[in-house]
């Protein structure tokens, strides 16, 4: 009985969590592309103006970033200025929650068919590497190990801390700017 009463609240909390994580990840993608040369060299292969989306099917939360050139991303929130070039779609919010709460690695989620790729698969592979790199930076090592296939051996603590601080600072600044603008 109690579980039935709580269930709507749990669903609402899960939806809010996924929405918040998308907002953080979108901003963090923009930030990491300004901070990390490895991410830049991955992103630079994408066409300029390339729009990447991660969303929950059928019309749930989403994040949209654009490659604005030179390996830099720009976060567009959940509104795309043009048709999307590559979309990674979670089949259900429960699957998005599994990945975004680091209970299931992104690669495992792909293997488990939790997500669909609509667009060029080679760009999807590239964006997955960028997401892995981002997670390795911004998450504590123990959590990051649950999120990525393999924690990068070359990423040492000083680099991780400095980069993470810069990314979080940029994310926070972006949140404040968005709040001021609205």
């Amino acid at each position: 009985m109690l579980a039935k009463r709580i269930q709507p609240m749990v669903f609402q909390a899960r939806r809010l969590y996924v929405e918040l994580m998308f907002q953080v990840m979108g901003r963090a993608l923009q930030a990491v592309s300004e901070v990390d040369s490895a991410v830049q060299s991955e992103a630079v292969a994408l066409p300029k103006g390339f729009l990447f989306e991660m969303m929950v099917m059928p019309a749930g939360s989403k994040l949209i970033v654009e490659h604005i050139g030179n390996g830099r991303f720009h976060y567009h929130g959940d509104k795309a200025p043009r048709p999307i070039d590559l979309s990674i779609q979670f089949k259900h919010i429960a699957h998005a929650f599994l990945v975004l709460s680091f209970q299931e690695k992104t690669s495992v989620a792909f293997a488990n068919d939790r997500m669909l790729v609509d667009g060029d698969i080679s760009y999807a592979v590239r964006m997955t590497r960028v997401l892995n790199r981002l997670e390795a930076f911004i998450l504590p090592k123990l959590v990051a190990k649950r999120a990525v296939k393999e924690y990068p051996a070359s990423l040492h603590l000083p680099e991780k801390l400095i980069s993470a601080a810069r990314i979080y600072l940029k994310v926070a600044t972006n949140f404040v700017e968005t709040a001021r603008a609205s």
Binding site: S107, F110, A111, S122, A124, V125, V148, K149, E150
Partner: peptide, 13 residues
């Protein structure tokens, strides 16, 4: 090969 879709399912990064 690094951009091939199959690489996503390789058990080792």
């Amino acid at each position: 090969a690094l951009d091939d879709g199959s690489i996503m399912f390789n058990p080792k990064e």
